[in-house]
Design a binder for these strands. Structure first.
Lengths: 225, 225
DNA sequence: TAGATTGTTAATCGATTAACAATC
DNA sequence: TAGATTGTTAATCGATTAACAATC
């Protein structure tokens, strides 16, 4: 496991998608698949699939392809999904509550154990059996429980201060829904979900299509010049 | 505008971040900024900033840098944020409701005008003044209203069928929260928010840190060999 | 003017794709 | 065995960074 070079984030970001497709194959009782077949399903090249997988090991067999169940379980291990994780939600607003209510997380071993907020109207409430605590209790909670990930769904202005504290108290990863970049030491991992940014890029693309269509018309007009 | 080569998605994905930083500068009454200064704030290279911006035009001035207000307004136009968009939510579950309740969207001109669901217990309800309709009414609604984007927060199994219908009825973009890939014609734009995938990559990174630490110890042990 | 900083070309780096020998 | 398909090296492609002449 050691002495290996770092895996590029392009590869890592594709792993959950492989995992999803292999899970679908499993559900359909497909026992083996070649990189070529999978590449057609996933709309990527077979070469990329083989390169990606070989970052972690030789999971296939010449002339046969990949055993679906084995490859699925290996990717599961690579992603660390064979463990259970302890998550807390910091910020009990719309998104925070929605994530607590999303029962699929628990099925996968992502267990939300507490929600924290400053709002007295929320504190003491229970969301799907999980209590909303005062943020003042957060330090004690984090220090006494092994919190793997904090889900940050709080206002921009507070995100960095809170995240720094959490990191100091032992939280290893920040799943950041706050619309701001976090400044964290290298050993604290951050994954951003910037919903507004995501929607903006979609709007760009929609407008781009319209512009393209306009230019096709325009070019046709000028064809005779 | 026409005859330009296509802008890479790496660039497009960075635009909302530029927009955010420029907005912050504006709020702090900073009127000009050089690519070098901005690069330090954003933790990217000045070269990349200049390359990115020059895909769309020369917004700066030699010896001066960029006028913050002007550049902000130009990126706003590039992203199409100077318009108002009509969105619908398809699937009135946790995430769907949370997005309806997120009032910041409206401030930016992303207006959610309707929610659709199959659940009789939700139909007729009102979320922040927006009614939840029966999906059976969706065709009529979409055909009579100019729907720019459908926010898909429905089960995997239904996402593709529903999205195909919506595309046929005139929806231009799909903001896809369903945990499945959509097969859409090229002129329909899709932006995925795969929350589970995002969390999985975070977990990978957390475990990677732990593995790295283990290997450092291991390497030290073996140093004498 | 002199200094600063852009816009843009050239160099580098990294990621994707192609090719093929190894081998099941 | 012959055919299929991997693992891996080499080639290509695209994105990032560096460099610098143009110019405000």
């Amino acid at each position: 496991m050691y002495n290996e070079r770092k895996i590029s984030s392009a590869v890592i970001n594709r792993l959950p998608r492989y995992y999803r497709y292999l899970g679908d194959l499993l559900e359909n009782d497909i026992t083996r698949i070649s990189s070529k077949e999978l590449s057609i399903k996933m709309n990527i090249t077979a070469s990329q699939i083989r390169q990606d997988l070989n970052n972690f090991g030789g999971f296939g067999q010449q002339g046969y392809g990949y055993n679906v169940e084995y490859l699925y379980s290996e990717i599961k291990k690579i992603l660390g999904l064979d463990k259970v994780y302890n998550l807390i939600v910091v910020g009990g607003g719309n998104i925070g509550q929605a994530l607590v209510n999303y029962t699929n997380f628990e099925k996968r071993g992502f267990v939300i154990t507490a929600v924290f907020d400053v709002n007295p109207r929320l504190i003491g409430m229970t969301i799907r059996g999980i209590e909303v605590h005062d943020v003042d209790c957060m330090e004690e909670f984090v220090k006494n429980n092994n919190v793997d990930v904090a889900i940050l769904t709080l206002p921009r202005s507070q995100a960095n201060t809170v995240a720094s504290n959490l990191a100091e108290w032992g939280v290893k990863g920040m799943w950041n829904f706050s619309h701001v970049d976090l400044n964290m030491p290298d050993d604290i991992k951050v994954e951003n979900v910037h919903l507004t940014d995501s929607l903006m890029t979609l709007l760009y693309k929609i407008n781009e299509v319209e512009t393209d269509e306009a230019s096709i018309i325009h070019n046709t007009d000028n064809n005779k010049e």
